[in-house]
């Protein structure tokens, strides 16, 4: 029977991180891009908690701070999205060109 080591958790976290990066780079819908960013933050959290098992509780405290930041980021990002939708009637990232000169 193979025991579960920190390595296994790191593999799951790496998979989540890569999937999140693929989502950020390939999807056009801003809502799904924001969700992929949440996926990346979750991968980081899993790493922090897995390492807190080895090196003390600081990792879990950092994970809580990351969750707080994710909440703030989601609120501001979705607020920007609503303001943008009111102007351009679209949610696609490739049509976001208000700052293009």
């Amino acid at each position: 029977m193979v025991p579960i080591t920190t390595l296994h958790y790191l593999v799951v976290a790496a998979a989540l991180f890569v999937l999140g990066v693929i989502g950020v780079l390939t999807r056009r819908n801003v809502v799904i891009v924001l969700m992929s960013i949440e996926l990346i933050l979750n991968a980081v959290n899993l790493n922090l908690v897995a390492f807190s098992r080895l090196y003390g509780l600081h990792g879990q405290v950092f994970a809580i701070f990351v969750i707080t930041d994710a909440a703030a980021e989601a609120a501001v990002g979705l607020g920007i999205l609503i303001a943008f939708f009111r102007n351009k009637e679209t949610v696609n990232v490739d049509e976001v060109d208000l700052l293009k000169w």
């Binding site: 579960i4 080591t5 958790y9």
Partner: peptide, 17 residues
């Protein structure tokens, strides 16, 4: 991951947090 990760076991129970 393969070369730099130890094999410290993470077991359930005896919760440290």
């Amino acid at each position: 991951l393969i070369t730099h990760s130890g094999t410290q076991e993470v077991s359930a129970g005896a919760l440290p947090g």
